[in-house]
Design a binder for these strands. Structure first.
Length: 667
DNA sequence: TTTCAGTCAATAAA
DNA sequence: TTTATTGACTGAAA
């Protein structure tokens, strides 16, 4: 019995254990279910949040779309209003043109022509007829002041076109000065234009169309109408700034464009000029030239010569003038043998005879030559520094030059150089190979050792500003990469290093400059925020603040550069828009960045990293792109730069002796 | 017509 | 105060 009871008891215990295990399992299942429910609830909550967020985004998008639609509607209205305004102004333009024509008719013959811009003098593309004092003389005006920068208000050809005189006589362009005396002539129009906002994009588009239609080049347009260089014209036409962002000075070209477009005569005249420049209409027509034509022919040939010389090697002006002089003398001789009737062709009454006139040209050329030979306040042209040191505080006489020759033991050689200065110089420069790094190193040491500032050195020795000197000394380009103009600076530095009295001279100059600055200090105060405009004496109150790009903007531009080193117009505009910058600022940044990367990359052959650039398909070569990586960043560390400079120095140091030989006249 | 080389001037950095 | 940097400009070259 007992055994039976024990058996049952043990079975119950086993069952109990089973039950307990099952209960435990059930509890686990329950816990898991609870967790699942919690997770489900969480998911549900999150989904609800997402739905809410989506709804919010939807609402915002709807609002944004509504806003954009509203803006679009406003813009459309603005466009319509502007179009209507433009329509109404078309009549106004006609009236204005008529008034201008009427005004011009009432003016006397002398008032028709005025002095052209002094920029004419520097433009080799423009015929000499437009540049020379004789041209101004023919136009009925005195020789223009070299200081005045004159804009073009209008352009007209002279009344007679059938005269036997040179056709250039009929191509005079009327220009009116913006200087104090003539500025009033603009007053009315300026006031009108200040009230009226110009659509610069439309204006430039119209100008582009007109120029294209009449095959007028930007150079000619820029020169005669805007008084600007071709590069600037290209930039203005491609990227016109909005009217409101322009300063008074910046608006000037657009006002001139407007005037140009409104006057058909201007377009016609410019077309005529362009055709003559392209040779469609010859400058000299008759084989039997009159005296005036002979003179013009000389000038024209000289113009070609200047262009040729400038294009070839930018030779010193002295040589060119010498050639001109020679040519003029030769022509004078030929002309003096001409028959009398040719001499007495149609010419200006003030000209006594062709020979006299040519001699007057020679005199003027001589004067120009003298001015170039002894410039005041700036170092001499390259051809001159082979004879004298530019550090001289006073003009040097021939005796002084010869004395220096003795000091340098090269009297004979220098004399030979003086005789053949023009012809030898090109060869000399071509054969030279200076160690620019070594030169700048020595100059830097000399300046530091003698406590001479870059400013004084730049002004007295190189004719450059402090910033340019700083750049030259800290990042000298290899000699072979320099243009002729660039080489000039290193030759000057080399000459300065060779001058035994170089430091002495500069120290004196530095002391004088300091004293002068100290004495002038109290009067400097009004200069803040203003600058005195050259020649006019008037203060220019408007001073454009310098654009300083933020780190973020620079980063963005650098990133854009990595993708597209030569950005399209569209990219530039997009970048400008995204960064809230002007398109010109963006394009300038790209120009400068490319330029500075090239500059720094050139002195870093060792560390150049060849990285496959995404821009390999761009116009830039892959080799150049490889240079444009981080190691060659324009803002790279000075030490890295020095290291690379040294490697360049090692390469070129052996050739420095050549120059020594050359400058001693041993070649 | 666009891009480059050289330069200036304003400004930042030393 | 000097030097370095950099946006802008011009004339020339591509």
């Amino acid at each position: 019995m007992m055994r039976m009871m024990k058996m049952f008891a043990s079975r119950d215990i086993r069952d109990l254990h089973h039950l307990e295990e099952e209960v435990q399992k059930l509890q686990e299942v329950q816990e898991r279910s609870a967790n699942h429910i919690a997770l489900l609830q969480e998911v549900q909550e999150r989904s609800a949040n997402h739905i809410t967020l989506l709804k919010e985004v939807q609402e915002r998008s709807a609002n944004h779309i509504a806003l954009l639609q509203q803006q679009l509607a406003n813009k459309t209205q603005d466009i319509q209003r502007l179009q209507a305004k433009l329509q109404s102004q078309q009549d106004y333009e006609k009236i204005k043109t008529e008034l201008r024509t009427l005004r011009a008719r009432t003016q006397t013959e002398d008032d028709v022509f005025s002095t052209p811009s002094d920029s004419t003098e520097n433009d080799p593309e423009i015929p000499r007829e437009f540049k020379t004092p004789e041209f101004h003389h023919f136009c009925g005006k005195e020789e223009p002041s070299s200081e005045s920068k004159l804009p073009v208000e209008n352009m007209r050809s002279s009344s007679s076109s059938s005269s036997s005189s040179s056709v250039s006589l009929h191509m005079c362009v009327k220009e009116e000065s913006m200087s104090e005396s003539d500025g009033l002539l603009y007053e009315d129009e300026d006031e009108e234009d200040e009230e009226e906002e110009l659509d610069t994009s439309r204006l430039t588009r119209r100008v582009r169309e007109t120029l294209q239609k009449h095959s007028i080049g930007q150079r000619v347009f820029g020169h005669f109408v805007l008084g600007l260089s071709q590069g600037t014209v290209s930039d203005i036409l491609a990227r016109p700034k909005p009217w409101r962002t322009l300063t008074r000075r910046g608006r000037e070209p657009f006002l001139r464009m407007k005037t140009f477009l409104s006057d058909q005569t201007s377009v016609q005249t410019l077309t005529d000029i362009q055709e003559r420049l392209r040779g469609i209409i010859p400058w000299v027509r008759s084989p039997e030239m009159s005296s005036d034509q002979v003179i013009r022919n000389i000038l024209d040939q000289n113009r070609s010569k200047l262009m040729d010389v400038d294009g070839r090697c930018q030779r010193g002006s002295e040589d060119v003038i010498r050639d001109i002089l020679h040519q003029a003398k030769h022509e004078m001789h030929v002309t003096s043998e001409m028959p009398e009737e040719v001499h007495c062709g149609t010419r200006d009454p003030s000209v006594q005879s062709p020979a006299d006139f040519v001699q007057s040209i020679i005199r003027k050329v001589k004067c120009e030559m003298d001015e170039d030979t002894h410039p005041s306040g700036s170092p001499a042209p390259l051809s001159i520094i082979t004879h004298s040191f530019p550090t001289d505080p006073e003009p040097r006489t021939q005796e002084c030059i010869q004395q220096e020759c003795v000091q340098q033991e090269c009297v004979q050689q220098e004399c030979v150089q003086q005789v053949c200065v023009g012809s030898c110089e090109d060869e000399i420069l071509e054969s030279l190979d200076l160690d620019t790094v070594s030169i700048t190193q020595r100059v830097k040491e000399a300046l530091v050792l003698n406590n001479i500032g870059q400013r004084v050195f730049g002004e007295e020795v190189l004719g450059l500003t402090q910033s340019s000197v700083s750049e030259l000394l800290s990042r000298p380009k290899p000699w072979t990469k320099l243009s002729l103009k660039g080489k000039e600076n290193f030759i000057r530095m080399h000459r300065w290093l060779q001058d035994p009295h170089n430091v002495q001279r500069l120290t004196k100059t530095d002391q004088r400059a300091r004293l002068k600055r100290d004495s002038q200090r109290p009067s400097d105060a009004p200069g803040h925020g203003f600058c005195l405009s050259a020649g006019s004496g008037a203060f220019e109150a408007i001073k454009r603040p310098r654009v300083v790009l933020s780190a973020h903007e620079k980063d963005s531009l650098r990133a854009a550069y990595q993708l597209e080193p030569y950005p399209s117009q569209y990219t530039i505009e997009r970048l400008a828009s995204q960064l809230a910058l002007q398109t010109s600022t963006v394009s300038n940044w790209f120009y400068n960045y490319r330029s500075r990367i090239r500059r720094d990359g050139l002195t870093e052959p060792v560390q150049t990293r060849t990285v496959q650039s995404p821009a390999s398909s761009s116009p830039v070569s892959s080799g150049l792109v490889s240079v444009k990586q981080e190691a060659c960043d324009p803002e790279m560390e000075e030490d890295t730069h020095r290291h690379t400079c040294v490697s360049v120095a090692v390469q070129s140091v052996t050739k420095a002796e050549d120059l020594n030989e050359l400058l001693r006249g041993e070649r």
